[in-house]
Computed example of a mutant assay.
Amino acid sequence: MGLMEHAIWWQVYPLGATGAPIRGEHGAPVHRLRRLEHWLDYVVELGCNGLLLGPVFASVAHGYDTVDHFRIDPRLGDDTDFDDLVATARDRGIHVMLDGVFNHVAREHPLVTSRPDLIRHVDGAPKGWEGHDALVELDHANPAVADLVVDVMTHWLRRGIAGWRLDVAYAVPTGFWRDVAARVRADFPDVVLLGEVIHGDYSGFIHDSTLDSLTQYELWKAIWSAIVDRNLWELAHALDRHAAFAADFLPATFVGNHDVTRIATTLGAPGAGLAAAILFTLPGMPSVYYGDEQGFTGTKTEAWHGDDEVRPPLPPTPADLSPLGAGLHRTYQEAIAFRRRHPWLATAALEVTHRANEQLAYRLVGRDSQTAEVAVDLASGSLQATADGDHLRYMQA
């Protein structure tokens, strides 16, 4: 099986996780990125083999306002810090994926004035992105922009990363991605290209862009919403669609990330455990957002500082975590271990076999006729999964 089919990612927002100031401090490098090395054994013990890093490049504030794609943000450190993290991760069998922001750049990016032909303009002025005046869009109709993106992607692939999460991929023409992907794969045929896509024609996007995967937001929404509303019809409908997507490509699945309210805030720790158990019994390439496995809480808002709560600092080491998260952590370990024992689940065919308000059952069939049966019961807050005589049981406390 390739990397995508056995990858389980631990997603981290580095600026927040390392305690870097999001606004201010742009001086000499501060070697915060090395703090993540203290968490690599924890990642392995959790059952993950991938580290999906949020923005690490020089930026103005939150990382998605890039000013230099070829330089590590000095608030995180420098090239040596990055190389050491990648090497230390590799020693533990952990692959690293980077977050590539190639739809827009910060208004302060040197290209805005030195290469205005690379920037989209409206009425003679750089075009802001989705109402964010601090961000300006790249002109993806200019072949030189594709050249830049290929240069950036291959530069960091040569430094040892395994792939790219492509920020707001939905806002970039699929033909642009198709061209870039072909050129990057010419040198790195095993690269993983994951596009951020919120809604729309998932299969069509994959076909037209030739990216490997995209963010399965439909499934994310249905998992938490069905539990909150005690309406498993919603999840059943989403699973029917997920089955069709998974037959076409390997969706990136999750119950939390850096852009949404924490799952434990939405569902409480018991509900968050049920959501995780569901996640790891479904086809796809799953990820865990750092701290979700410990019951971290935080609400995403539309205020100026609206992301801060969901992007908090980690303690210095795993030993400094609160013991209050231990129960949920064990739930994640058990669910991931079940997935590890049955890696065929990543590409299994999925069929809903029973649906009701508070009960849901589904069957998974592997390429070699392996089978798994999963039953979810909201009345008892439980999930039971059986695969080839092996069992996963989750019961809310």
Score class of each variant (00 low, 15 high):
3 L>Y: 15
6 H>S: 15
15 L>Q: 07
15 L>C: 09
20 A>R: 10
22 I>W: 15
28 A>S: 09
30 V>K: 13
32 R>H: 08
32 R>G: 03
34 R>T: 04
35 R>Y: 11
40 L>D: 12
40 L>R: 05
41 D>I: 04
44 V>Q: 15
46 L>T: 03
47 G>P: 07
49 N>H: 09
51 L>C: 09
56 V>Y: 01
58 A>I: 00
64 Y>G: 01
68 D>N: 13
71 R>A: 15
78 D>R: 03
84 D>I: 03
90 R>D: 12
90 R>W: 02
93 G>D: 15
93 G>F: 12
96 V>G: 04
99 D>I: 10
99 D>Q: 07
99 D>E: 07
101 V>P: 02
102 F>P: 00
103 N>L: 13
105 V>H: 11
106 A>V: 06
106 A>Q: 04
107 R>I: 14
109 H>E: 03
110 P>S: 06
111 L>Q: 01
112 V>R: 11
114 S>A: 09
115 R>C: 05
119 I>A: 02
124 G>Y: 06
126 P>K: 08
129 W>P: 00
131 G>W: 04
132 H>K: 06
133 D>F: 08
138 L>N: 01
145 V>D: 11
147 D>E: 14
149 V>W: 14
149 V>C: 12
149 V>D: 10
149 V>G: 10
150 V>I: 14
153 M>C: 06
154 T>W: 08
154 T>L: 07
154 T>A: 07
155 H>P: 01
157 L>P: 03
164 W>Y: 12
166 L>T: 09
168 V>T: 11
170 Y>P: 00
172 V>P: 02
175 G>Y: 07
176 F>G: 12
177 W>R: 05
182 A>M: 10
183 R>C: 13
187 D>C: 14
189 P>K: 02
190 D>S: 15
190 D>N: 15
192 V>G: 04
192 V>D: 02
197 V>N: 09
200 G>W: 00
204 G>D: 04
205 F>T: 02
205 F>H: 08
209 S>Q: 00
211 L>C: 04
211 L>V: 03
216 Q>Y: 05
222 A>C: 09
223 I>F: 02
234 E>P: 01
235 L>I: 06
236 A>N: 01
236 A>W: 00
236 A>S: 14
237 H>Q: 12
237 H>V: 06
239 L>P: 05
243 A>S: 13
244 A>Q: 05
244 A>P: 00
245 F>G: 01
245 F>I: 00
246 A>D: 08
248 D>N: 12
258 H>C: 11
261 T>E: 03
264 A>S: 14
264 A>L: 03
265 T>E: 07
266 T>R: 12
268 G>F: 03
272 A>L: 02
280 F>Y: 14
287 S>H: 13
287 S>G: 12
288 V>P: 07
290 Y>A: 10
298 G>T: 02
301 T>F: 13
309 E>C: 05
309 E>A: 15
312 P>K: 04
320 D>A: 11
325 G>D: 04
331 T>E: 11
331 T>V: 15
336 I>L: 14
343 P>S: 15
349 A>C: 14
353 T>E: 02
354 H>F: 04
358 E>M: 06
365 V>A: 14
377 D>C: 11
380 S>D: 12
382 S>V: 06
387 A>W: 08
387 A>Y: 11
388 D>H: 09
388 D>Q: 15
391 H>Y: 04
392 L>C: 05
394 Y>D: 04
394 Y>P: 01
396 Q>H: 08
396 Q>V: 07
